[in-house]
């Protein structure tokens, strides 16, 4: 579990809120990677894109279409916000797969803040756009009238469970994956099991590549779904 321990970069034991730690380092690397892809990669502004530029454009188009399809046309103004979350999670997930790196998205503090940010955005946008009408989200008019209060309570609980599942999903997937790799790597200490362990680590590593992409995708698409609730609470 020591791969998950945040440690100060320049010595010392105390972690103040401003201390540069390995968290800072790997987040900075993520920022630099994103900047390299999206600023250096697109500096040609070529109509016929280079390879790097077309990767950036593909990601742009992919998320743009997702926001438009899932959350609706009027959600496009939240696109930079959603794209920021997506890129950060995607790059942090993939950078975390580099051996000896620090996986920032395997921390509840990180995923929790992002999930809470989405949750608060949804609530604020919902109330600003629809006022009290936003509460109709919990009142399912398609259900039989008798069931509606019960369903409203359930929906209310589910609504508040959203940030929890939203954050714990990402944190759990990344942390569990890395822990499993570590466990398999631990088996390699036993000489007899070492070949199997190495095959296992390779296989799990491949699975983790998949998980890294899928978790970023799922976090983003759920953000879009929640945002749709805020923009169109009447289903």
């Amino acid at each position: 579990m020591d791969q998950f321990v945040p440690a100060p970069l320049f010595g010392g034991d105390v972690i103040h809120w401003w201390t540069p730690t390995n968290v800072t380092l790997w987040m900075a690397i993520a920022v630099l990677s994103i900047a390299a892809l999206f600023v250096l990669g697109t500096r040609g502004r070529a109509v016929v894109p280079t390879r790097t530029q077309s990767v950036a454009e593909l990601m742009y188009g992919f998320i743009y279409k997702m926001v438009e399809d899932v959350a609706g046309k009027d959600a496009v103004k939240f696109f930079p916000y959603i794209f920021t979350l997506f890129l950060f999670i995607l790059f942090a997930n993939f950078l975390a797969l580099i051996p000896m790196s620090f996986s920032t998205t395997s921390h509840l503090a990180v995923t929790g803040v992002m999930a809470l940010a989405v949750f608060l955005t949804v609530i604020i946008v919902g109330f600003v756009k629809h006022g009290v009408g936003f509460l109709k989200l919990f009142w399912l008019t398609s259900a039989p009238p008798v069931m509606r209060p019960v369903l409203a309570v359930l929906e209310f609980i589910l609504f508040f469970a959203r940030p929890v599942s939203h954050s714990v999903r990402l944190f759990g997937a990344i942390m569990a994956g890395h822990a499993v790799v570590k466990v398999f790597a631990g088996f390699a200490q036993i000489t007899a099991a070492a070949p199997l362990a190495i095959v296992g680590v390779t296989a799990i590593y491949g699975l983790e590549m998949l998980v890294a992409g899928i978790q970023a995708y799922v976090f983003t698409i759920l953000t879009c779904v929640y945002l749709k609730d805020a923009l169109h609470p009447h289903h």
Partner: peptide, 18 residues
């Protein structure tokens, strides 16, 4: 607090870049 602080810095920087 450390992680949250650096996360917010990171997200704001990415947001501004994008």
């Amino acid at each position: 607090p450390n992680q949250i602080f650096w996360l917010l810095v990171t997200l704001v920087v990415i947001y501004l870049i994008l």
